[in-house]
């Protein structure tokens, strides 16, 4: 890491550091050793084949699980429990939201310790940001999948996180909704300047969202490569994806994933 005098210090200190993180389930070595820096105020995307331990890593990062070896530090402090300032969006929105609470209650629920007036303001702002401000009195099951995932994102935003982690947040919505939610994430991240770590196994999505890509190998996984994505902002589903640079990075990530799979002899489309 080279220190440039002009860059603000916050840019140079990684928000989140993984240091030799490994995870063994019984005798199954799922994650061999992951060392990676997640830069602050950027979107980092972790991409890797199915079963390579992406969800496991996110659980470790968010303090829900312990690494077998190695450590995670967030803002310089070793993670032992759920770190303050972390919010998470789960893949399965229908299981992570509470179907007995209306949308506004779902978003407000994590804010039980926040004074009422401020809580209401934050909930309204978060729902406004995801475009659901007139749907606050619906139940989650009265909404489409994409809308439910917006609620989950609003819940994360309302807690005013410094680090937002998302585990395959768009894997269960249709292509159009997915594109909308990708753009929503890009916009919100630019507006709030928060650090985002997204896990996906969709190569296009990883390049489109990322400032920084961490490519994982097949299990037991290691970091195959980290790539800085210098595509300009604001990004656009049509023009960005037609950008020769996008195509190039995309091809590179694809070949990395393919190469790693060939190496372990696995047969994947």
């Amino acid at each position: 890491m080279t220190d440039t005098t002009t860059a603000p210090t916050t840019q140079t200190i990684p928000e989140l550091q993984l240091d030799g993180v490994s995870k063994t389930y019984g005798t199954n070595l799922a994650v061999r050793s992951i060392t990676a820096d997640i830069p602050a105020h950027k979107i980092s995307v972790m991409v890797g084949p199915s079963g390579c331990g992406k969800s496991t890593l996110l659980r470790i990062i968010s303090g829900l699980d312990q690494p077998t070896d190695g450590s995670v530090s967030f803002e310089g402090k070793t993670v032992t429990g759920v770190p303050e300032g972390l919010a998470m969006v789960f893949q399965d929105y229908s299981r992570s939201l509470y179907p007995w609470m209306r949308v506004d209650k779902n978003v407000a629920f994590p804010l039980s310790k926040v004074p009422k007036a401020e809580r209401e303001r934050r909930v309204a702002e978060a729902l406004e940001a995801v475009g659901l401000k007139d749907r606050t009195h619906l139940y989650p099951w009265q909404m489409s999948g994409g809308m439910q995932q917006r609620v989950a994102i609003a819940r994360a935003l309302a807690s005013q996180p410094k680090l937002l982690v998302m585990d395959e947040p768009y894997a269960s919505v249709d292509a159009q909704t997915r594109a909308d939610l990708e753009d929503l994430l890009l916009r919100i991240q630019r507006e709030l300047g928060i650090t985002v770590l997204v896990v996906t196994h969709d190569i296009d999505e990883s390049v489109y969202l990322a400032d920084h890509i961490i490519v994982l190998s097949t299990p037991p996984s290691i970091v195959a490569e980290t790539i800085d994505v210098d595509l300009p902002h604001p990004r656009d589903q049509v023009t960005t994806k037609a950008d020769p640079r996008f195509v190039e990075i995309r091809g590179h990530v694809a070949s990395l994933l393919r190469h790693k799979e060939l190496q372990t002899g696995e047969d994947r489309p």
Partner: peptide, 27 residues
Amino acid sequence: VGEVRSQAAAVYRIPTRLVLTHIVLPG
């Protein structure tokens, strides 16, 4: 009630009392 819902509760640091009354019992 489901692991993901309890994980969500853990991530958002919901106090135990509220987890019981607002997540476990309704679920």
